[in-house]
């Protein structure tokens, strides 16, 4: 991919806005379409695009494979954590009211925020891990294929 100058330049310009858009989709999900799943996929797309154009070593220097693997499990744990805490405090599982008992809708805000963040981490980790798994089987797509 060394002589695909346009692809390299465009990729360099696009990666940051893609990740920014993923964060927007994630944290604006209360008001506009989108949420953890979509944001996770968009976030992963940013890394995958970088990996396709610049090669596996470059992208794995930013996000190593072991970290992507840990993210998969970490996200599920983040999702389940408010549930476990609410159980310990005597509420139902995933009942977000425990966060602020006097103002239930604030609790809902924070609960939704936390679980959506868990979804983001898991989906990003899974998508990037699957891409790594496929792409490290063999060198990237050869130049004649483009």
């Amino acid at each position: 991919m060394h002589h695909h100058l346009i692809l390299r330049v465009v990729t360099k310009m696009l990666v940051a806005p893609i990740i920014l858009f993923a964060l927007y989709v994630q944290f604006h999900g209360d008001f506009s379409p989108g949420g953890g799943f979509q944001a996770g996929v968009i976030m992963a797309v940013g890394f995958i695009l970088y990996g396709i154009v610049y090669g596996m070593e470059k992208v794995q220097a930013v996000l190593p494979a072991w970290l992507a693997h840990k993210m998969m499990a970490l996200g599920v744990m983040i999702y389940a954590s408010p549930g476990v805490i609410s159980l310990l405090l005597g509420y139902n599982f995933l009942d977000y009211r425990f966060i602020s008992p006097h103002h239930p809708s604030h609790g809902q805000h924070w609960g939704v925020f936390v679980v959506e963040f868990g979804v983001l981490v898991t989906v990003t980790g899974v998508m990037i891990s699957i891409y790594y798994a496929f792409a490290s089987r063999r060198p990237a797509i050869s130049d004649e294929e483009w």
């Binding site: 999900g29 379409p33 949420g35 953890g36 809708s105 809902q108 609960g111």
Partner: peptide, 16 residues
């Protein structure tokens, strides 16, 4: 919920 997006609050809270 006090969250405008119906899909978000159903998915993340009611059907959490």
């Amino acid at each position: 919920m006090d969250i405008p997006n119906v899909v978000t609050y159903i998915l993340a809270s009611y059907r959490g």
